[in-house]
């Protein structure tokens, strides 16, 4: 039982990170109907930016953790946003209105480019970082297993909840959110009504990238090791999460992220750890076969 609860807590933590990345996929898919293939790599860049920012802060001597976290968060969100914007500008915008596979392929090219760019600039070896936040609460001591909730896990889950709420409000209350929802439904009509469609799409990429950067920072804190290749698997899993929750739906992305995190954690805890990546893909295939619209998605009607 203790083991189960411990795995549940670990799963929720991992799920929060996947959920944050999944939002980027779901938003972009919602607005332009395309998978942003480079999103996993934006996440990876976010992780690297955070790592570098932590190191710089360590050198400068800012060691008060809340301030350090905030600064790192701001830096990595800002710069990852620029990366997100650039990806859209270079790989998506020139191909808007082109045939369907073209942007997908240019995004794959972008993803390959970014991976090798980081490998070239920051080295191919894994980059470890000492734990920034340590310690935690321990429950039910004395049994075979005890339950530990680290401060870090609390930070991750709290941060995710705050950001999710902020984003839900942004989408439902602000004019930018309204513009996004408008573009999602009918781009031409939105343009006729005076919405700058290009700008809205750019901002969607920027928002997705910012959240991916947060996920990257949390990943660095949680695992402590990163390399240039983490974006690929994390990206696929987060995409699975977005599909599972129903692509295009924000709460769906979060739910899907949590589920994928839980499934992966329980799979490695109770079955085999080697095949944990297979679990995520198997779920993706099963969901697509039996419920292609996902858990919270709307059915899509194909028009002639």
């Amino acid at each position: 039982m203790e083991y189960f609860i411990q795995q549940l807590i670990n799963g929720v933590t991992l799920g929060s990170i996947y959920g944050l990345i999944a939002i980027g996929y779901t938003m972009v898919y919602g607005i332009i109907g395309m998978i942003n293939f480079a999103h996993g790599d934006i996440f990876m860049i976010g992780a690297f930016l955070s790592l570098i920012a932590f190191l710089v802060l360590g050198i400068v001597g800012i060691t008060w953790i809340p301030l350090a976290l905030l600064l790192v968060l701001l830096v990595s969100m800002l710069i990852a946003s620029i990366y997100g914007w650039t990806v859209e500008r270079l790989a998506y915008r020139p191909l808007r209105g082109s045939f369907r596979l073209a942007p997908l392929i240019s995004a794959i090219g972008m993803s390959i480019f970014l991976q090798n760019y980081v490998q070239l600039l920051q080295g191919a070896r894994v980059r470890p970082i000492p734990p920034v936040i340590s310690g935690g609460f321990t429950f039910l001591e004395g049994g075979i297993f005890s339950i530990t909730v680290s401060y870090l896990q609390i930070v991750i889950v709290l941060l995710t909840i705050i950001l999710m709420t902020a984003f839900a409000l942004l989408i439902s209350r602000t004019s930018l959110g309204r513009a996004q929802r408008g573009c999602e439904q009918d781009r031409t009509m939105s343009a006729l009504l005076g919405i700058n469609v290009d700008r809205t799409i750019s901002l969607t990429f920027v928002m997705g990238a910012a959240l991916a950067a947060v996920a990257g920072m949390l990943f660095v804190l949680y695992y402590g090791v990163i390399d240039f290749y983490i974006g690929f698997l994390a990206g696929i899993k987060a995409f699975t999460a977005a599909v599972l929750g129903g692509i295009g739906s924000l709460p769906g992305a979060m739910l899907g992220g949590l589920l994928i995190g839980l499934i992966e954690t329980f799979w490695s805890a109770y079955f085999t750890i080697e095949y944990k990546d297979v679990a995520a893909f198997a779920i993706l295939v099963l969901v697509l076969i039996f419920r292609p619209t996902g858990l919270l998605g709307r059915p899509e009607i194909e028009k002639v």
């Binding site: 270079l90 790989a91 191909l95 392929i105 240019s106 090219g109 390959i112």
Partner: peptide, 11 residues
Amino acid sequence: AFGGLMVAIMV
């Protein structure tokens, strides 16, 4: 270069 080329040619 390969990744960059893919983007450039698509565009």
